[in-house]
């Protein structure tokens, strides 16, 4: 059976600047992969290439054995939860209608009911998506992503701008989908603590792939964790022209 994702020698530019340089990455069935790296490390470019949005790259990307530049049909086997919602806030669409958009092989209303129950959003079914909080919206988008029972769930920094209670609920759902439903998860995040808690595999990216291996191996190696943190802080200093707050004052190691 082909691997969910096979990336080999991937190099890509973003706005004329090299964003990814010779990146290779294999995702095995059942993996929970956390992709980490500082801002500007190329995580979003990697995801855009992987999802068939950005097609101008060198190297090959296969999703379930299919080169996505040749055929996009493999994308139907994955569920995708984006970083930020780009829809019009007043868009007249209910929660149920949004989830229905994710169904491709005929609409089965009972499956939509089932997914809404699983994600505790059944009471929101008639509400407009724009009326919901960020956390509720994100659960709706997970419901849309999993309503077809995909084998692979891809998420690009899905908890940006969401309150901590909703984030905890969100992580619980992800853990359940991976552990109890056998769903392969590929997830990019800035939150090292969350990656340590949830991911079985870690890919540490900063234009190049610095590390790809088990989560235990990554967190056991202090130099790797420090490299990630220092990389983040270096970028932070470049962006803000001032040093970040010391860790004791509430700065997060992964920010």
């Amino acid at each position: 059976m082909p691997r969910p994702i096979e990336i080999s020698g991937l190099s890509a530019d973003y706005s004329g600047v090299r964003a990814l340089d010779d990146v290779s990455l294999d995702v095995e069935d059942g993996d929970f992969l956390g992709v980490i790296g500082p801002n500007g490390a190329g995580k979003s470019t990697l995801f855009s290439c992987m999802l068939g949005i950005h097609t101008d790259y060198e190297g090959t990307i296969k999703v379930f054995g299919q080169d996505i530049r040749r055929s996009k049909s493999a994308l139907r086997k994955l569920g995708y939860v984006p970083q930020m919602m780009h829809f019009e806030r007043n868009f007249p669409i209910t929660v149920r209608e949004v989830i229905r958009l994710g169904m491709w092989h005929g609409v089965r209303e009972e499956r939509i009911d089932e997914v809404m129950q699983e994600l505790w959003i059944h009471e929101l079914e008639g509400r407009r998506i724009g009326e919901l909080s960020g956390g509720q919206q994100q659960r709706v988008f997970i419901a849309k992503a999993i309503v077809n029972d995909p084998k692979l769930l891809v998420m690009d920094e899905p908890v940006t701008g969401i309150d901590q209670t909703s984030i905890n609920l969100f992580y619980g759902i992800l853990k359940d989908l991976n552990a109890n439903h056998g769903m392969t998860v590929v997830w990019s995040s800035h939150d090292l603590d969350a990656v340590g808690m949830l991911a079985t595999q870690v890919a540490c990216l900063n234009k190049r792939m610095y590390f790809h291996g088990s989560s235990k191996e990554f967190f056991a190696d202090e130099s790797l964790v420090r490299l990630h943190s220092e990389g983040s802080m270096h970028i932070h200093m470049q962006e803000h022209k001032q040093p970040p707050a010391p860790p004791g004052n509430g700065a997060h190691v992964g920010t």
């Binding site: 999802l51 068939g52 949005i53 996009k72 049909s73 994308l75 139907r76 994955l78 995708y80 984006p82 919602m85 780009h86 829809f87 868009f91 669409i93 949004v98 958009l101 994710g102 491709w104």
Partner: peptide, 18 residues
């Protein structure tokens, strides 16, 4: 209908769904 609605709602997600 579905393709038009989906791409109106969110182009990126619509693109990913093929």
């Amino acid at each position: 209908f579905k393709q038009i609605l989906y791409s109106t709602f969110d182009e990126k997600q619509a693109m990913v769904s093929g």
